[in-house]
C-alpha cells in the first residue's frame, strides 16, 4: 500500500512541477524572444508580465471552443488530450535530483525507474504523432489534413534518427534504465573532467536536432507554420487549442531534460560540503534545473535566429544525412567499445 501512496504523491508533485514549469516557460520564451528581437514583450500582467501565461490560459479556458460542422467530433475532442498525455508520461521517468534519504528509506526524485526507461521514452514519444494525425483528419478541413500528413511524415523520419542517436548511449553505459544512465555518468575522466556522455558528440548533436524536429519547434515547425502554410490545429480554438500549446511546451522541457539526463550527467554537479545536510538534496536539483533551462534557452534562441526549413530539405536532411551518419557512428562506437571490452582480435 505504501508503494501506491508514494507513487500517487510523486505523480501529483510531478504534475504540479511540470505545470508550473510550463507556466514560467511560456512567459520566459516570449520574454527571451522579445529581447532577442528588440521588442518589449509581455509587460502588463504582473511584474515583468510574469502572469501573462496565466491570463492567456484563463482566456483560452473561457473562450468558446468552436465545433467545425464537418468535423468528426469525438476524435476532434480526443486529439488534444492525446497530445497532452504522452508529454506528461515522458516526464515520469526523468530523475530531477539525486536520491534522498529520509528516516532510513531512500526515495528517488523520479516517479518511476523502469529498466527499459529509454525504450519507454521512445515508445511514448512515438505515440505523440497520433494526436497530430487525428487532429488534422477529424477537423474535416483541407489545410489541417495536409498539415497532419506533413507532420506525421516529419515526426516518423526524425524519430528514427533520434532512436539511432540513443544507441551509442546504451552501448557506452550498458543500461537502458534512465537512473542507470545518470549513475554511469557520475565519475570523472582524469581528475576533473566529468565523465558525461557528451563525449559521444555526433550522437549528442543528432539527438538535439531530432529533438527540435520531434517537438515541432523552429527551424522544423512546418507542422504548425502559423505564418504561411498553416498546420494541423487550424480549426482548433479555446481550451482545445490551449492543450496542444501546453503539450508542445511540456515537450520542449522534456526534450531539454532528456538531453541533460542522457548526455550531460543529469543532476551531476559539485555539491559543496559546507552546506547544512537538510539543504544538500537541493543542490543536485539545482544543477539539473540549471542545465535543463540552458537547453530550453537554446530552443528559444534557435527559434529567434533560424528561418524555417523548406519541406524537401527537411526530409533530405533527415533521411540522407542524419540517419546514415548515425548508422556509421553506431558501427564506429560498437567497434571501439568492442576493442575496449574484449581487446583487439589480432592480439
Amino acid at each position: 500500500m505504501t508503494v501506491f501512496i508514494e507513487a500517487a504523491i510523486k505523480v501529483a508533485v510531478a504534475f504540479v512541477f511540470i505545470m508550473l514549469t510550463t507556466l514560467v516557460l511560456v512567459w520566459a520564451e516570449r520574454k527571451w524572444v522579445s529581447d532577442l528581437q528588440n521588442r518589449i514583450g509581455p509587460d502588463r500582467a504582473g511584474p515583468f508580465g510574469i502572469l501573462q501565461t496565466l491570463a492567456d490560459g484563463l482566456k483560452a479556458f473561457f473562450k468558446e471552443s468552436i465545433r467545425p460542422t464537418q468535423s468528426i467530433y469525438l476524435l476532434y475532442l480526443v486529439a488534444p488530450i492525446a497530445a497532452l498525455i504522452p508529454a506528461l508520461l515522458i516526464f515520469l521517468v526523468i530523475p530531477i535530483g539525486a536520491p534522498i534519504e529520509i528516516g532510513g528509506t531512500t526515495y528517488t526524485l523520479q516517479v518511476m525507474d523502469l529498466n527499459i526507461g529509454l525504450l519507454y521514452v521512445l515508445a511514448v514519444s512515438s505515440l505523440a504523432v497520433y494526436a497530430i494525425t487525428l487532429a488534422g483528419w477529424s477537423s474535416g478541413s483541407k489545410y489541417p489534413l495536409l498539415g497532419a500528413v506533413r507532420a506525421s511524415a516529419q515526426m516518423i523520419s526524425y524519430e528514427a534518427a533520434m532512436g539511432l542517436a540513443l544507441v551509442p548511449v546504451v552501448l557506452l553505459t550498458s543500461t537502458t534504465s534512465i537512473a542507470g544512465i545518470v549513475d554511469a555518468q557520475q565519475g570523472t575522466f582524469g581528475s576533473f573532467i566529468p565523465a558525461w556522455n557528451i563525449v559521444l558528440i555526433p550522437s549528442f548533436i543528432i539527438f538535439l536536432i531530432a529533438g527540435f524536429a520531434e517537438t515541432n519547434r523552429p527551424p522544423f515547425d512546418l507542422v504548425e507554420a502559423e505564418s504561411e502554410i498553416v498546420g494541423y490545429h487550424t480549426e482548433y480554438s479555446g481550451f482545445a487549442f490551449a492543450l496542444f500549446f501546453l503539450a508542445e511546451y511540456i515537450n520542449v522541457f522534456n526534450m531539454s531534460a532528456l538531453t541533460v539526463t542522457l548526455f550531460l550527467g543529469g543532476w551531476a554537479g559539485p555539491v559543496p560540503s559546507f552546506l547544512p545536510t537538510w539543504i544538500q538534496w537541493l543542490v543536485p536539483v539545482f544543477w539539473f534545473l540549471l542545465k535543463t533551462w540552458a537547453f530550453v534557452f537554446l530552443f528559444v534562441w534557435v527559434r529567434a535566429t533560424l528561418p524555417r526549413m523548406r519541406y524537401d530539405k527537411l526530409m533530405t536532411f533527415g533521411w540522407k544525412r542524419l540517419i546514415p551518419v548515425s548508422l556509421a557512428w553506431i558501427i564506429l562506437c560498437a567497434v571501439a567499445i568492442g576493442f575496449r571490452e574484449f581487446g583487439a582480435p589480432w592480439s
Binding site: I116, L119, Y120, L122, A123, V124, S126, L127, V129, Y130, T133, G136, W137, L145, A148, V149, S152, A153, I156, E159
Partner: peptide, 22 residues
C-alpha cells in the same frame, strides 16, 4: 511490451493511418 508499442503502435499503425489519409 515496449517493442509492441514502438513497432506496432508507433510505426506500423502510423503508416496505416498515413496511407488511409493519403
Amino acid at each position: 511490451a515496449v517493442i509492441q508499442v514502438i513497432i506496432y503502435a508507433g510505426a506500423v499503425m502510423t503508416l496505416f493511418l498515413f496511407v488511409i489519409m493519403l
